[in-house]
């Protein structure tokens, strides 16, 4: 068990390092940098010599591997550097924007899970074949909807037409309703698809027939035998879909003008604020790694077969 844990931790650290390095190289490879974008602005009236001095003060011209080692050293001590554009520590910016995103992401994920489970189980329980077919085609529809379009449509319909959700000065929860739905839909779709397939698969297993032979009703079998067996493989997909959640949050926050990490990312990309982007990439990778680590560690808890010290059987 401890070997398993160490192995997973090692993998997690490797993923973090790789995410840091690749994003570092890509950000360095971009033409121009944040310093140029900010100070080359003609309105500031700086001459090339002054710009060069400022660049030197940001250490923007030192060799790339020196910068790499310096940055990695800073990150290891929890120092994410300064945002060139805003002139404040990156950690301050992250702290200001993180809560909104955490709220959006966790609510979005919960709603996605609720959607997916509802679709899968309602379609499995319905006695009508046509209804089952209709419900099961919902995920494919969900998958093909682009997030930005869905967001705009929801605002159009619910805010402007039906005036159900205010756009001007919404309450702290009201402003989350439409973004959460927008975020949940593309995540719920693949989850539901996997879950529907798993349920169908588990239903054909002999132990289901045995449970039916005991006199258990369809509902009893579905909840007490099928559900857990079908949800286990879905858990892996849920961990992987977390990446989708991060990507979805950027678009959603932009569409709805929410002040979260997504919006921050969008602005940082616009101004090539490498320090901010670097920190966001590492933060996202960290979140992704932690979620998947939790999923991996959860498996032995939920599945007794993974708990025992694998007895060698020839």
């Amino acid at each position: 068990m401890s070997g398993y844990l160490l192995n997973r931790l090692g993998q997690a650290l490797f993923v973090l390092w790789a995410a840091f390095t690749i994003s570092f190289v890509l950000l360095q490879a971009m033409p121009g940098d944040a310093v140029l974008i900010k100070f080359q602005n003609p309105e500031l009236g700086l001459n090339p010599q002054q710009i060069a001095d400022i660049r030197a003060s940001y250490a923007a011209d030192s060799a790339i591997w020196v910068q790499y080692l310096q940055t990695i050293g800073r990150f290891l001590t929890g120092n994410f550097g300064y945002s060139v554009q805003a002139g404040v520590p990156v950690s301050t910016m992250l702290a200001a924007h993180l809560p909104a995103t955490l709220k959006l992401a966790s609510l979005g994920f919960i709603l996605a899970a609720v959607f997916a489970v509802a679709i899968a189980f309602v379609s499995s329980l319905t006695p009508f074949a046509w209804l089952r077919g209709a419900i099961q085609s919902v995920p494919s529809l969900f998958i093909s909807i682009p997030t930005f379009w869905l967001g705009i449509m929801l605002i159009q319909i619910f805010s402007f037409r039906l005036k159900l959700v205010p756009v001007i000065n919404p309450g702290p929860w009201q402003e989350l309703i439409l973004p959460v739905i927008t975020l949940a839909v593309p995540i719920a779709a693949p989850l539901a698809q996997v879950l529907v397939r798993n349920i169908d698969d588990v239903l054909t297993r002999p132990f289901v027939a045995v449970a039916r032979a005991k006199g258990a009703t369809r509902h009893w079998v579905l909840w007490r035998h099928v559900a857990k067996n079908a949800l286990l493989p879905t858990l892996t997909i849920a961990g992987v879909l977390f990446g989708e959640l991060i990507a979805g949050a950027v678009v959603t926050e932009t569409v709805f003008g929410l002040n979260g990490i997504g919006g921050l990312t969008e602005r940082a990309v616009g101004s090539q604020d490498a320090a901010v982007l670097q920190a966001i990439v590492v933060l996202s990778a960290l979140a992704f790694v932690i979620i998947n680590l939790i999923v991996d560690l959860l498996f032995p808890v939920l599945d007794p077969r993974l708990r025992t010290k694998a007895g060698a059987t020839a």
Binding site: P206, F207, A216, D303
Partner: peptide, 22 residues
């Protein structure tokens, strides 16, 4: 459902997959 298990019961073919693993 009232008869299954109570009046007629089943011993299945493959004991490996006939019990719920979890």
């Amino acid at each position: 459902d009232t008869v299954r298990g109570a009046k007629i019961s089943l011993v299945p073919q493959d004991p490996a997959s006939s019990l719920n693993p979890v």
